Simulated scan of single mutants.
Amino acid sequence: MTYVVTDACVKCKYTDCVDVCPVDCFREGPNFLVIDPDECIDCTLCVAECPVEAIYAEDDVPANMTQYIAANAELAKQWPIIVQKKEPLPEHEEWASISGKFDQIER
């Protein structure tokens, strides 16, 4: 089982999770992070670090967000590794509580 970044990360991109990842499995896109399922070791450290609770175990991804499982796998192959915490996106506070942002992912 791997972990999956979901809806709450879109247009927020908090990177607290990146700092605790022991295997550098996070990938960075313009307005979203993903987890490379081939690199994730299921350590769970990132889950507690996410301030918007965007990270789920694959088996626990809510039914309305299952498209994020495939998106994480696909985008992890395209986006570069991120290994250090950065500031969240400028409008992160406004977007943090908005749901249904899958179509807002900049690829």
Rank of each mutant, 00 (worst) to 15 (best):
E49Y: 09
N72G: 05
D60T: 06
L33P: 08
Y56L: 05
G29C: 06
D103I: 01
Q104A: 14
W79I: 11
I69T: 02
V34K: 04
S99L: 04
E93W: 01
P22Q: 00
P88M: 06
A73T: 05
M65S: 06
P22E: 00
A76D: 05
W95G: 08
C12D: 00
Y14I: 08
D24G: 15
T15R: 05
E74Q: 13
K86C: 04
K86R: 15
T66N: 02
D36A: 02
E49Q: 13
W79F: 07
C12Y: 04
D36F: 01
N72W: 05
E58Q: 13
V10L: 07
E49F: 08
Q104Y: 12
D42L: 11
A96K: 12
E74V: 10
D60W: 03
W79S: 10
I82G: 00
A76W: 00
F26T: 03
G29T: 09
V5N: 02
K85T: 04
I69H: 04
C21F: 06
E91Q: 15
D59L: 01
K13L: 15
C46I: 01
M65G: 07
D16A: 14
D16P: 13
C46E: 02
C50T: 02
E91Y: 11
I81L: 09
W95F: 14
E28G: 11
V47E: 14
D24Y: 13
I55H: 07
E74G: 07
R107C: 11
K86E: 13
A48Y: 11
V52K: 01
V83D: 15
L89V: 05
R27D: 06
D103Q: 14
F102P: 06
Y14L: 04
P80Q: 05
E58V: 11
A8N: 12
D19W: 09
G29D: 07
V5L: 01
K86P: 01
K77Q: 14
V18S: 06
G29S: 12
D42K: 12
T15H: 04
V20T: 08
E39H: 13
L89F: 06
V23N: 07
E91D: 15
E28Y: 10
